[in-house]
């Protein structure tokens, strides 16, 4: 196992030194950044807290960073933490009553769905400042400005790789913590868990806050990398479902699952785009949609979940 991780790590250090196209590097950066967001989602999603509200956290992170930069000239080094703080605050305001009033399952999904729409519609409604549905572009400065958090593509690769690795470390830490055991017990039977002395609300809020904060950070960075923000692609139901699906198809119970989900969805999308060009707009999500249905019916633990299960059986 250690060898596999070392090999993966070494392989990921190579791309900037290889003669690959800007386009390939771009895809790699996108995969890493989105994989970070998907990983963040699974930190709460794997415990049955299926949130359709991560579009809200993503949107808050991105827009807070870009708006503060454009309107007040505040560096993303302050904008990002402010965006994260806002996302955490919103997560608390929604998460605390959800836990206290036992809003779970369908109801939790619908409350978070409403939340994500609130954020998207607020961004659209505040069009004088945010640019509304047309989206906005952070003010450009010459590249590789640490202050403005605007880099060349190669630098971005290192940033994305670092952030992604940090995401995995956090996932691993949560996976090995008491919180994980507590959350497993809670997702099995909340009343029983409370009866043995687990502070249900506290545990739920812990994973919710971690997940929301990382998602907002990922959103802020994606906005900074793409240099274009749009409420439809950075907030709202669409991106929320995209996050959930990528995490599930990759496998949310395994550390690399969300990353595999990101590779799968982004590469498939790009592949079909290159293959069909603009002739069959919609071909990629059509295949994607069918795949998701099949995954949930036949492979609910995702690709990595099935692989991990196979490996375990072989060893036994």
């Amino acid at each position: 196992m250690k060898i596999a991780w070392t090999l993966l790590g070494a392989a990921l250090l190579l791309p900037p030194f290889l003669p690959i196209s800007e386009y390939t590097l771009h895809i790699l950066i996108l995969v890493l950044l989105w994989a970070f967001v998907y990983t963040a989602w699974t930190i709460m999603g794997r415990f049955g807290l299926v949130s359709l509200g991560h579009g809200a956290f993503l949107g808050l992170g991105t827009y807070a960073t870009a708006l503060l930069w454009n309107h007040w000239g505040l560096t993303p080094w302050l904008g990002l933490p402010l965006g994260i703080a806002t996302a955490v605050l919103v997560a608390l305001v929604i998460g605390y009553p959800c836990s206290r009033f036992k809003v779970v399952g369908h109801y939790f999904a619908l409350v978070t769905l409403a939340l994500t729409e609130v954020v998207r519609l607020s961004i659209v409604a505040w069009r004088d400042v945010t640019g509304g549905s047309l989206g906005m572009t952070p003010d450009l400065v010459p590249a590789n400005s640490l202050m403005a958090l605007q880099f060349t593509r190669i630098t971005w690769y290192w940033v994305a790789l670092g952030v992604w690795a940090v995401g995995l470390v956090i996932w691993h830490r949560v996976d090995r913590s008491m919180t994980r055991s507590a959350m497993d017990a809670i997702s099995d039977d909340e009343t029983a868990a409370a009866a043995v002395g687990i502070d249900v609300t506290r545990q739920k809020l812990t994973v919710t806050i971690i997940s929301a904060a990382l998602t907002a950070l990922g959103g802020g960075l994606i906005g900074q990398y793409q240099m274009y923000l749009n409420p439809e692609t950075m907030a709202g139901v669409g991106v929320s479902l995209q996050i959930v699906f990528a995490a599930i198809s990759g496998g949310m119970y395994v550390i690399l699952g969300p990353t595999v989900g990101a590779v799968l969805t982004i590469v498939l999308q790009e592949f079909l785009r290159v293959l069909f060009g603009t002739h069959f707009i919609g071909a990629a999500p059509t295949i994607y949609g069918i795949m998701l249905i099949l995954f949930i019916i036949f492979m609910p633990t995702g690709i990595c979940g099935v692989v991990a299960e196979r490996m375990r059986r072989k060893r036994a």
Binding site: F245, I281, G282, Y288, L292
Partner: peptide
């Protein structure tokens, strides 16, 4: 719920096609 979410993607993009 999530499986019908996959259906949502499918129907939207199939209609686009």
């Amino acid at each position: 719920l999530l499986a019908t979410g996959g259906l949502l993607f499918f129907l939207q993009s199939f209609a686009t096609l």
